[in-house]
Amino acid sequence: MKSKMTIKNTLLKAMPTLMLTSLLSACGGGSDTATDPKPDTGTPITPLITIDDEFGFWLTDLANNHILPSYQNLQDTSALLSSQAVDFCDQQNQSSDELTALQQSWRKVMSSWQTIQWLKVGPIVNDNRIFRMHYWPDSKDSVGRGVTNLLTTSELVTEAFIATQSVGSQGLPALEQLIFADNQHSLLTASDQAKRCEVLTAISANVATISQDVNSEWQIIGGNYHAQLTQGTGDFSSKKDAVEELVTNWLEQIERVKDEKMLVPLSVASPGIPSIAEHVLSDESVISIQKNIATFKVIYSAGGGHGFDDILIDHLSQQNIATEMLTAIDNAIVSANELTGSYETLLKTPEGRVQISATIDVLRAVRDVLTVDFVQATDINIGFNSNDGD
């Protein structure tokens, strides 16, 4: 698709035609009489770029620079994990190094997912894929019960069988329970090792298939959901509607990170509630939070393309709001990156709890700028209703 400059240049190509029209009008329709006034050859007429055009530039660059690459990365890492799971389970005697490699492969898939987790439009929401990929929060232990049921069933667990099970049984959290299990239930030593490998390979294949299907449906040569988003058609009534949907998704992710990933596990006092954090077994909670928050800047800037900063400054003359928004996001990124070590340790130590609280506060600042100054300046409506009361 065209970059912001290519699209703008396309519009600017209309300049000669517009200038000719203006000149003809100035000459009384093109008469060649000697009494006609000379045409004005001063400042050329520049085509008017509307806010709808600006939204289109942002949608296109966000799709090209962030959404499509993120889903491609998710497909690639998921396929690799599925292949490694098969290779791991085909061996007679697996080593701890091989299990570590499998765990690292899972981490790469999870990292890929966390960069695009915020987006809740298009193929990922079809067929319940978003929950089949990553079911969390899980207050009723649907993942744990689902994995247990798979391990105890007498049926052969295949990818097709997995796809018919509860969403908690199908995705990355279920794989986490298998790949990061304690010594008693480890893929290396468990008494039901063969069954665990059967379930592992089936769920890995299911995750790979979901990732491939979602990516294919986004691609221009595939289902081309790209066109719906960037042109404001199909699921969207206009480009502005598409922007409003995505900004709503962005706000929901800000609230999710702030509340479900941080505020709830922090609880009211040490040691917090680490057991309900997003990644208890793998201890990827901090990294996932950092990935999420880093993505906020990618959303704002359209991955370094025609971002909201361009719209606010160049089109709306709102330099102060652009600066305020970018500063809030940068502060959140810096604060999140200062979270280091085990999430459980951060939740229970005074220093760690102060750091988590500070990150929560800067996320509130991002939310406040987004929901007040930003939406007023851009004249967009967001459909999210915050119920956290903070």
Rank of each mutant, 00 (worst) to 15 (best):
M5Q: 14
I7G: 02
I7M: 13
K8Y: 09
L23C: 07
C27E: 13
D32G: 09
A34S: 07
K38W: 08
K38T: 12
G42C: 02
T43I: 12
F57V: 04
W58H: 15
N64M: 07
H66K: 12
H66V: 14
S70E: 09
N73Y: 00
L74T: 05
L74I: 02
Q75D: 10
T77L: 07
S83L: 06
S83M: 05
Q91K: 15
E98W: 01
E98A: 10
E98P: 04
L99C: 10
L102A: 13
L102S: 13
R107M: 15
K108R: 13
Q114F: 04
Q114C: 06
K120W: 07
V121A: 11
N126A: 15
I130R: 13
F131W: 10
F131C: 00
F131D: 12
H134W: 12
S139D: 15
D141I: 03
L151N: 02
T153W: 04
E155F: 08
E155W: 01
A160V: 14
G168D: 06
G171P: 09
L172P: 07
A174K: 01
A174S: 06
Q177W: 12
L178Y: 07
I179D: 02
F180V: 00
F180I: 00
K195P: 08
R196P: 05
A205K: 04
V207E: 12
T209H: 03
N215H: 14
Q219H: 11
G222F: 00
N224G: 09
H226E: 11
T230D: 08
V243F: 05
V247G: 05
W250C: 10
E255R: 14
V257D: 01
E260H: 10
L263W: 00
L266S: 11
S267T: 03
G272M: 01
S275W: 00
H279S: 15
I289M: 09
Q290T: 05
K291G: 05
Y300I: 08
G305Q: 07
G307D: 08
F308A: 01
I311H: 03
L312Y: 06
Q318Y: 08
N320W: 00
I321P: 03
A322S: 15
A328V: 11
I333A: 12
N337M: 06
L347K: 07
I356C: 05
I360N: 11
D361Y: 12
D361N: 15
L363D: 12
A365T: 14
D373A: 12
T378H: 02
D379T: 15
D388I: 13
D388F: 12
